[in-house]
């Protein structure tokens, strides 16, 4: 790699056309870059990494990455990933989703994957809108915000993504923003290292639809708002509840060791085979 090259190039598919497909300034590229840094720091072999996405702007991320990649159906990435992880527990399986992808149509799979605590790293790029389809409101669109399908202001309270994942049983839950990209890659690294279901909420923005409809300015303005409108968990605890109600709180909200699904199933195999003590790693690989 020549000294002028970005260290991330080692992880890109050179047979793919660049620059990427996302709008100029979109945060998804920043999340991809953070993911690459996390994987590189851990030192994972590319063959051992699978990146699975659903449908939406985030859905187009895996194809750029030189890993085992799958672009599945809207909302169902976690279900596909559950099958792959269960079949090949040795793989590190990372699932990239948007807020609508993961929490609207994908909500059922989101809470069950967390409940099972199967070893997946779920990264939800939360820009509070359906970007690809042109700016419809999503389960994380703020109350009162304009959207293509909420022309008179959104009347649905948004999901608290991290609390939802934690309540459902995730072993690791953290939130950062695309402004805090280095903090974000730390959380992604911890999430990947975690043995269990880990969720990283990467708060981002969509200046093309949400920003335009709510007069929030171009990418640089929306990025600035992430900087000025977010605080660390520690700082947030000092705030009075009514103070800064819509501030974005960044931090690790859960990091517990909980039995991981595929490991528990190895116990099932042992019990089924009635093997007294012998531990049997269940047969992955070719059937």
């Amino acid at each position: 790699m020549s000294k002028d090259e970005h260290s991330a190039y080692n992880y890109l598919r050179h047979t793919k056309k660049f620059p990427n497909v996302w709008c100029s300034g979109c945060g998804i590229g920043i999340v991809m870059s953070a993911l690459i840094r996390a994987i590189d720091r851990i030192g994972l072999a590319k063959d051992d990494v699978a990146v699975i996405s659903g449908i939406g702007c985030t859905g187009r991320m895996p194809v750029y990455l030189d890993f085992n990649t799958m672009h599945t159906t809207h909302g169902r990435a976690l279900a596909f990933a559950t099958g792959l992880k269960f079949a090949r527990p040795e793989l590190k399986v990372i699932v990239i989703m948007g807020d609508g992808d993961a929490l609207a149509i994908g909500g059922n799979h989101f809470i069950h994957a967390a409940r099972r605590n199967i070893g997946l790293t779920a990264i939800v790029v939360n820009n509070s809108i359906y970007g690809m389809t042109g700016g419809q409101h999503s389960p994380t669109t703020p109350l009162g915000s304009r959207a293509a399908t909420a022309p008179y202001g959104n009347i649905e309270p948004p999901f608290p993504v991290c609390e939802l994942a934690a309540a459902a049983g995730a072993a690791y839950v953290a939130r950062s923003t695309v402004y805090h990209a280095v903090e974000l890659d730390r959380y992604i690294e911890q999430a990947i290292r975690k043995n269990g279901f880990s969720l990283v909420e990467a708060v981002s923005y969509c200046h093309t639809t949400f920003g335009r409809m709510n007069k929030l300015g171009p990418a640089v303005e929306m990025m600035r708002r992430l900087k000025e409108n977010s605080v660390t968990k520690a700082a947030a605890e000092k705030l009075a509840p009514s103070e800064r109600p819509d501030v974005i709180v960044r931090g690790v909200f859960r990091d517990e060791d909980r039995p991981e699904y595929t490991a528990l199933y190895d116990e099932v195999v042992r019990r089924a085979q009635g093997a007294a003590g012998a531990s049997v790693r269940s047969a992955g690989g070719a059937g």
């Binding site: 000294k3 002028d4 090259e5 970005h6 260290s7 991330a8 190039y9 890109l12 660049f18 620059p19 990427n20 996302w22 100029s24 300034g25 979109c26 945060g27 998804i28 590229g29 920043i30 870059s33 953070a34 840094r37 695309v178 402004y179 990209a181 280095v182 890659d185 990025m223």
Partner: peptide, 16 residues
């Protein structure tokens, strides 16, 4: 400080 090459959405800038 690497702000630019950790935030570029297109990996189009690098700091050596």
């Amino acid at each position: 400080c690497h702000w630019c090459d950790t935030h570029c959405p297109d990996l189009a800038i690098v700091v050596q």
